[in-house]
Design a protein around this nucleic acid. Sequence first.
DNA 1: TGAAAATGCAAGTAATTGCTTGCTTGGCAC
DNA 2: GTGCCAAGCAAGCAATTACTTGCATTTTCA
Lengths: 205, 205
Amino acid sequence: MDHPDIEQKLGGRGEEEQETRERILSAARQLMAQKGYKGATTRKISELAGVNEVTVFRHFKNKVGILTELLKEIMDVREQLEQGLQGEFSDLKQMLVSYARTYYGLLVERKEIFMICMIEADNHPEVVQMFSSLPMTAVEVLSNKLLAFQEQGHLPKVDPFTAALMFVSTFFYAFMAKYRVNLDIEMVEEELFENASEILLQGIK
Amino acid sequence: MDHPDIEQKLGGRGEEEQETRERILSAARQLMAQKGYKGATTRKISELAGVNEVTVFRHFKNKVGILTELLKEIMDVREQLEQGLQGEFSDLKQMLVSYARTYYGLLVERKEIFMICMIEADNHPEVVQMFSSLPMTAVEVLSNKLLAFQEQGHLPKVDPFTAALMFVSTFFYAFMAKYRVNLDIEMVEEELFENASEILLQGIK
DNA sequence: TGAAAATGCAAGTAATTGCTTGCTTGGCAC
DNA sequence: GTGCCAAGCAAGCAATTACTTGCATTTTCA
């Protein structure tokens, strides 16, 4: 009796094995995002994964084992965000649009995990810092960039933190609206990126 | 055997009765916001309320009865938001600041209920529309106001919806950061209102 | 083909959870 | 005092849930 949970088969041997494990993870991800950790019973997970419930416990030590495995999927966020600011941009607006795209893309790409984090923030304390990692670093990273611009004299005296917060919030909100509460807010993302960047730069007055 | 759940004692007779009922509601509000609907067991609720578990079921038909009672607390939001835009303001900025104050105040005032709504959005479908009511009407109301200004020629051609979205998002995000994820983001709310209004109007360029 | 590993199946267990029942206790009004 | 009503207490019940065990079956791969 072993716990393949740990022994991470590196080789290409098992497509089947990994398939099963992946199916379980995928089912759990989906269910936990929808129903929360408690709502995603091991029974339901196994059913959705199309495997026997016992198999779930053969792959993972216990239920939290599944959750912690899932949480690993948000650990590498900061780098990706900073990469979104790496390239050379023709102007400030293009940089903002690109940053918006990157950030929003990250949110959507891992929407289930973020939902789980939101929902379970109080129940699984370790979640909190992981979760805060994306939204807050997103503000931080942009804030720093703006500050740099400011010091070069390219921007007036406005508070760069607030500016970054406003910008990032917008897409977080849009993300939540679209994927958590299914608001029939018809929006074209690319347009939102454009408009928001424009407004942040020029204001509405 | 009766269900005081329904028969809403109008008279002033019972301070005791209402006190108990209120204590139960308050405990449930707190626990559900923290642990979610499932996590808030009737046992825990009764303990936190300092009453016997049976008493809970004497006051409420069943557990969902408690939830639905709690949800009534967000039904009257739109009016309050519109009131926040009612008064006469010296300038546009003062209006925005006031709106921010109103909106953020509403969020904080009912933080538990909103948390519950976020968490339970998928499990209790009736929750969704109630929940969406605040965040989305907040955008709507402001959006309309901006549009009106625009038609009077007071604002340039920027998309008022995006502008409203940006503005509202900011405070929603700040609210989430402070009360859900306990980010050690030190912020003075009143300053945030000021700065965000300024930026929305003038831009950062 | 044959051994080993992965999965299925049947059954069960201890704990939790929502909710009920029957009875007692204590306070308030008349 | 008497009667009423809210609340406490003890006990329990049926369903669910995370998790286990033992064994049969299939799949994989050498």
